[in-house]
């Protein structure tokens, strides 16, 4: 039974990855969106001057980019499923419903992380050259990116499954997604800030914020997992 679920999980995940490798639609559109956001940031920061410390706003800026980018990707991943009747087929096949949730969330998490880890260096390249560097080891940033993306993927997978069947689709996703994401984003920005600015006590602050991130992931992830069975059936 256990190994059976694992095989189903791998099969759905592989399907998503193969499709993405063939079309490259999600990663390319999310990546382009992230880069376009940075162009907008350039405009936003244009009048701030050279002396302005970008590090002060950088955590917020990257998470704004990531949250909107993730909504784009989440919506994409389910519009496909719906248009091609893939969800119906999955529901007809003897696949356990929790497995569908884990497989879809993992797929979304992987694509999200790929784009995040690509666009963060681009952000540093465009905005942080010749300025003060990172205050703490860069791997701390990787920890936040991973931790918060788990929550985004888990809750986002549930909400996107719902909103793809509503009239507004992507707008609807934003309306539901952003309020629910607030505690996670707040903690993620706090942790990122501690990691970027550094200074005495910043590592402790970082882990305190990470505890919030992990707590959110655990609680909301479990709830999303519990509700998914009901939501995907109708």
């Amino acid at each position: 039974m256990k190994s059976n679920s694992w095989r189903q999980f791998k099969a759905i995940l592989r399907k998503d990855i193969v499709m993405e490798l063939r079309t490259k639609e999600m990663v390319s559109s999310m990546g382009l969106y992230a880069i376009l956001t940075m162009v907008v940031y350039q405009i936003a920061l244009a009048e701030a001057g050279e002396s302005f410390d970008v590090r002060l706003v950088m955590p917020g800026l990257i998470w704004v980019a990531f949250i909107f980018m993730s909504m784009l990707g989440l919506n994409r991943s389910f519009v496909h499923e719906k248009d091609q009747g893939c969800i119906e087929a999955l529901l007809l096949s003897p696949v356990d419903r929790p497995v569908i949730f884990f497989a879809k969330a993992t797929g979304n998490l992987i694509f999200l992380l790929i784009v995040e880890f690509l666009s963060l260096p681009i952000f540093s390249f465009l905005f942080m050259q010749g300025r003060a560097g990172y205050g703490n080891p860069v791997w701390l940033l990787a920890v936040v990116l991973f931790g918060a993306s788990v929550g985004i993927a888990a809750v986002g997978t549930l909400l996107a499954t719902m909103t793809v069947n509503t009239k507004g689709k992507d707008v609807m996703l934003a309306v539901l997604f952003v309020p629910l994401m607030y505690p996670l984003l707040r903690a993620a920005v706090g942790a990122t800030f501690a990691a970027v600015i550094g200074g005495p006590g910043s590592v402790e602050t970082f882990w305190a914020f990470m505890a919030w991130v992990v707590g959110y992931d655990a609680i909301m992830g479990l709830v999303a997992y519990g509700l998914y069975e009901f939501v995907i059936g109708v």
């Binding site: 549930l158 909400l159 719902m162 629910l180 709830v223 009901f230």
Partner: peptide
């Protein structure tokens, strides 16, 4: 009804 219930619980 299902979606609203789910979202209500999340909120």
């Amino acid at each position: 009804a299902v979606y609203a219930s789910a979202f209500g619980i999340l909120v």
